[in-house]
């Protein structure tokens, strides 16, 4: 099976957005799950592992599970623990 390399844009917010940027690009294979994406992010930003692990991940404005597959064109976001209100 041929795996195509592509890039996924990941939106980051709050302290994480300040630390690594509000929109980071991660090179990935064409098929990647949410949990695989999280590991890529951690290996790219190892000093932010704790904070990346504390995030939920949203795909197209919905919270998703670890197993969710990410598709081309999806809007991915790392959601740190919220503190609105």
């Amino acid at each position: 099976m041929i795996k195509l390399q592509t890039k996924v844009k990941v939106l980051c917010f709050a302290g994480l957005g300040e630390a690594i940027g509000k929109c980071v690009e991660i090179p990935v294979d064409s098929e990647i799950s949410v949990s695989e994406l999280r590991e890529r992010l951690i290996s790219t930003y190892p000093e932010h592992e704790r904070s990346i692990r504390s995030c939920m991940i949203a795909v197209n404005h919905e919270y998703v599970t670890q197993e969710t597959a990410i598709k081309t064109g999806d809007q991915i976001a790392l959601i740190p623990p919220v503190s609105g209100g």
């Binding site: 917010f13 709050a14 302290g15 504390s54 976001a77 623990p81 919220v82 503190s83 609105g84 209100g85």
Partner: peptide, 27 residues
């Protein structure tokens, strides 16, 4: 309000006399 505070992706940064920090974040 309980659900908003639990799930809606909004964050606050508190500016105090000793500096600022993102509330509830590990960042």
């Amino acid at each position: 309000i309980d659900r908003i505070k639990e799930f809606v992706p909004i964050w606050k940064k508190e500016y105090g006399e000793d500096g600022s920090y993102w509330v509830g974040c590990n960042c």
